[in-house]
Every structure is written in structure tokens, then in C-alpha cells.
Design a protein around this nucleic acid. Sequence first.
DNA 1: CTTGACCTTAAAGTTAACTTTAAGGTTATG
DNA 2: CATAACCTTAAAGTTAACTTTAAGGTCAAG
Lengths: 139, 139
Amino acid sequence: MKIGELARESGLAPSRIRFYERQGLIGSIDRGLNGYRQYSRGTRQVLEIIVMAQQAGFSLDEIRNLLPPHGKGDWSKDRLVAALKTKVAEVEALRRRLSETQAGLEAVIARIEATSPGGDCFENAEGILAGLRDQTKTG
Amino acid sequence: MKIGELARESGLAPSRIRFYERQGLIGSIDRGLNGYRQYSRGTRQVLEIIVMAQQAGFSLDEIRNLLPPHGKGDWSKDRLVAALKTKVAEVEALRRRLSETQAGLEAVIARIEATSPGGDCFENAEGILAGLRDQTKTG
DNA sequence: CTTGACCTTAAAGTTAACTTTAAGGTTATG
DNA sequence: CATAACCTTAAAGTTAACTTTAAGGTCAAG
């Protein structure tokens, strides 16, 4: 399987696949006589794992450290679980912060909609500021 | 008030304040005879508003469009409310996605911890992949 | 009058995760 | 056999939001 085909199947641009190779996320694979990369079916799965991990919020750096050393197919279960748990905690924290942000924004909207139509800039500004500040401190 | 003092009060680096000026987020202000920037108290509030808006997920570009044109102190209330509502919807969507991600990660952790200690790489890999895929599609 | 803490500018550097470009070799098709 | 559609590489460009650097002016203290 050449890179173009892998690209079509995985939905990633060829440049992106080569980039992942340069970054050490996928091993440097076989080449044909012409120098073209020849991929095995497994590579597609590795790519899918990378994309999934990215969606879960892992950086490429983190993913590289989680992926098994090229050649050896062996994840350290403990390391993997630990990393996943850390990431869950991070996601959880981010989620909470977003909830606060959302509540804050909604409060600000309510506040603005309640102002008299002709209110001037800095009255509004300070109201908004106060609203946001309360929310971000409290929430 | 010179830039260093404003920086201390606002907690932002001087370079960051100058950067905001270059980006048109705060107006080009008065200069002393020596060429030093002279800030009024109001600038600090503008900076706080910028930071708050950033925390709410607005990009500097968006903030620039929300902030009143320099000199004129007048927000268009409707434009502001519309932008805030759009942002709330975006935050809401992101929050939902994070919930899914979190559930997915937790499911994957449970799955890994349930595997036999000697499971090999690609069995695990595919299980993880399947778990993540289910979650990201379903959730 | 010199030292150090400020201030000024323009321009270049940083980070992540890629993409684009330039320059060239290969393969399939009419 | 020409032409298009592939493939190769290294290097430079992209974006956001800044920071850092270089080179220099200003100001207060001793």
C-alpha cells in the first residue's frame, strides 16, 4: 500500500503521514525499489489510534510516549493507565472551567439585556467585568 | 501611569500590553515628552475585560470586534449580545464533547484494567480504539 | 558622571501541528 | 513518447498569542 492509498483510507493528508513519521509516531517503514513507502495494514490502525488519542486531548508528544517503541509491540499497561487517568483529570478540570465560563456568559447576557437601551460604554463594561469576575472566582 | 506600573497592576507583561496596542485592542495612547506611554486608569479596565473575554474563549480577533472603536465609548448592545450567545453555544458544544471524551477515557481505562496481565499490544490497541470510537460516535 | 532601572522600536524567535513549495524521480495511460 | 498522476526530499510557510532580542534613549541615585 503506497502513501496515497493509506491517505485515502485513513482520511489524513500524505504530508501529515510523513510528518508523523518524522516525529517518530510511526516507524520508518519499508520502501519499494523506487524508494516509495510501502505500508502494511497495521499502519492504518496506528494512525487511527493517533487520531483518537488526539481527540481525547493528547498532544503528539504525549502520544509518542504512550505508543509502544517501534518494532516491539508492547505497551506498558501501568504507564498507559496512569497517563489516561491523568488525562481524565485534566479533561474533568477543563470541563468544570467551561461550565463556569458558560454560567458567567449567561449571567452577562442577562445583565446586558436588562440594561436600559441607552446605557453607555463603561457602565456596561464594568458590569460585564464584574459579572465575569464573580463567575470566574466563584465557580 | 507608565507601562511598567500598568503592567504590575494588571499582571500583564509590558510586551503583552504593547502587543495589544499593535493589534488594535487598546488605542494608541498619550505619550510624554520623552515618548513614554502615559496610561489612564481606564486602560487597566480595558485590559481586564480583554483577559476575561479570553478566559471565556474569545480570540483576540473576536475581542477586537467586540470592543468599541477607540475613542468612541459605545458598544452595540445587539452585536455584543449576539456574539456572547454564539460563544455560549460554542462553549456548550465543547463541554458536551469533553463529557464524551471523559466517558470514553474512563471506559478505556476500565477495559484495560480488566485485561489479562499478559495481553499483547494489538489486542489492547484495538480494544482501546474500539472503545474510543464507540464513545466519540455515540456520545 | 556613571550605573542601573526604566522606556522606545523593529524584527526575529517560540510552540504545535501541520501544509506548502521547490525541485526532481517514477509510473500508468493514450 | 508525452503527459498526468503519482512518489521523493528538504526547507520554508502557517496560525495565535505572545516573548525575546538588539540597539538605543531617559531618568533617578550616589
